[in-house]
């Protein structure tokens, strides 16, 4: 049985751009707070604090940012799921998002809380920054691939 469902997000021309703005502020907050800790791991920025101290104060805001970003992202996705599903930039973005979140709460968290050799610490900070940048890059490319999508060829 096919259920007829009209997504309310598609009945307003304003809904999508408003959600995009919320999405951007959400990832500025989450990625920005993670970046502050990463910069500290690289010995830049707030060097008077230990990475663990910084992480303690950032973690709530990182979660708030992630929640805003993921929820608004899911709503954006719901406006046209087929298009996103068929868009390889979107699939790449989701892969990097999962990798970035898992990395953040496993390897990254371990180094921040317990410390590691200077080389490993810097490597982990660079990997963390690179993963989050890949998420942003994937997001931008969704829009640039979209016009070329031909559903009949899939």
């Amino acid at each position: 049985m096919l259920i007829e469902f009209q997504n309310p997000l598609n009945s307003s021309a304003l809904a999508f751009p408003i959600l995009e703005c919320i999405h951007i502020v959400g990832f500025a907050l989450s990625i920005g707070t993670i970046a502050i800790v990463d910069f500290r791991l690289l010995d830049f920025g707030m060097r008077h604090q230990t990475p663990a101290q910084l992480n303690k104060d950032m973690s709530l805001w990182t979660i708030v940012g992630l929640a805003i970003m993921v929820l608004s992202g899911m709503m954006l996705y719901s406006s046209d799921p087929d298009m996103y599903y068929l868009n390889w930039a979107f699939l790449l973005k989701m892969t990097f998002l999962v990798l970035a979140i898992v990395f953040n709460y496993t390897v990254h968290r371990g180094v921040v809380l317990s410390g590691a050799s200077p080389g490993r610490t810097k490597l982990v900070a660079c990997v963390s920054l690179a993963l989050w940048m890949c998420v942003v890059f994937g997001g931008i490319f969704i829009g640039f691939l979209n016009p070329t999508l031909d559903i009949n060829k899939v």
Partner: peptide, 25 residues
């Protein structure tokens, strides 16, 4: 990407002045 990295730092600075974040620092 620069909005994500550095815009977040601006947000945290503002939240610190408002007494909402990083009050220990």
């Amino acid at each position: 990407a620069s909005i994500a990295l550095f815009g977040g730092m601006i947000l945290m600075g503002d939240l610190r002045l408002l007494g909402l974040a990083m009050k220990d620092h």
